[in-house]
């Protein structure tokens, strides 16, 4: 991917503003929105490593999210250990699971791969929701709140900075994938595996690495999310909707770009928060209207603006600079 220099400035500005938010804002509701935007952005950025940079479109990334969420929740609720240990366990398990999915990506292409990832996340969903003795089954697990950094019992401001840290780190991974040797080679694999092989690139191994990295990154945010929200529900954390949402944020923002997942998250999470607030008093289910908008937006974006918001911005910039010339 050619580097979008202006995009970097937008990213610096966005993350900079977020860093300043807690200084001026004490409203828990607004801080909550900021945290969710960052976490969703980081999740989408994690998905983007596989779906965007490696071109392996997964509809089962919720599996890794759930692994991270459950590892930490069980570690804290059942074993009274630090969620950070759960985070590490989640990463380890996701590396294994990601390796399996990565292996599948070498055997299966396009819709077959997407179907296999859905099946994978569904198996985990069934296990998590039916293995009552260990996971508490479909009731889910409340995550105990114990104040302190080691226990991830943090206030809103601390959460903003933690989420920001993850977001910036993941943005950095994206930049690395756009500028490093491995990143260029991965782009080659995404564009044409056979041609990449002819140029000396071990394409299969590289794809497995990318999917595994993406899985581990997703798991980390899964852990933070569970600790932040305080509850793990198997039907949510392993849902196909969640997997779709990672992809959706990324595609609307700009697939295969560093900033795209964060822009998509900003737009969609804000829209969701606004609509939920506006329609929450109305008859049940009406808050779901934002999902109707998403779905429709997804159809329209892949058809008419496949490069997403970042691509649209680049297009407009070219047009305006031509107009000025």
């Amino acid at each position: 991917m050619p580097a979008l220099a202006p995009g970097r400035w937008v990213a610096v500005a966005l993350f900079g503003i977020v860093a300043l938010v807690p200084a001026g804002v004490r409203d828990a509701y607004l801080l909550d929105s900021v945290i969710l935007i960052l976490l969703w952005g980081a999740l989408s950025a994690a998905w983007n490593v596989a779906g965007g940079y490696a071109g392996q479109v997964s509809l089962g990334h919720a599996a890794f999210f759930g692994i991270g969420a459950y590892s930490a929740a069980l570690m804290t609720a059942r074993f009274q250990q630090s969620p950070w240990l759960g985070l590490m366990l989640g990463v380890a398990l996701s590396i294994v699971a990601g390796g399996v999915i990565g292996y599948l990506s070498n055997r299966l292409r396009g819709p077959y791969f997407a179907l296999s990832t859905i099946a994978f996340s569904q198996v985990l969903l069934i296990v998590a929701s039916r293995w009552r003795g260990f996971t508490a089954g479909s009731e889910g697990i409340p995550v105990p709140f114990r104040p302190g950094f080691w226990t991830l019992g943090l206030g809103h401001v601390a959460w903003v900075y933690l989420a920001l840290g993850v977001a910036v780190l993941y943005y950095g991974v994206a930049i690395w994938l756009e500028t490093s040797r491995v990143g260029y080679q991965l782009a080659g694999v995404r564009e044409d595996e056979d041609a990449a092989e002819a140029l000396g690139i071990a394409s299969r191994r590289l794809k497995v690495y990318a999917v595994t990295l993406s899985a581990a990154m997703t798991s980390v945010v899964g852990t933070f999310w569970a600790q932040y929200v305080g509850f793990v529900d198997p039907f949510y954390v392993f849902s196909i909707d969640l997997s779709v949402r990672f992809a959706l944020n990324t595609i609307i923002g700009g697939i295969g770009t560093g900033l795209g997942p964060f822009l998509g998250s900003l737009l969609i999470t804000s829209l969701e928060t606004y609509l939920r607030a506006t329609f929450s008093g109305m008859k049940t289910g009406f808050a779901g209207i934002y999902l109707v908008i998403y779905g429709t937006a997804l159809i329209l974006v892949v058809r008419f603006v496949p490069e997403g918001l970042t691509g649209l911005a680049a297009r407009l910039r070219v047009r305006s600079s031509r107009a000025h010339a």
């Binding site: 479109v57 509809l59 819709p111 997407a114 289910g285 209207i289 109707v292 779905g295 997804l298 892949v302």
Partner: peptide, 25 residues
């Protein structure tokens, strides 16, 4: 493939939630 996958996935999300909005859960 990817465009086709996301088009039908988008359709799925839209229809599912249109049903939710119209007829509740």
């Amino acid at each position: 493939h990817n465009v086709q996958i996301f088009t039908t996935v988008g359709l799925s999300t839209a229809l599912q939630n249109a049903a939710l909005v119209a007829w509740t859960g």
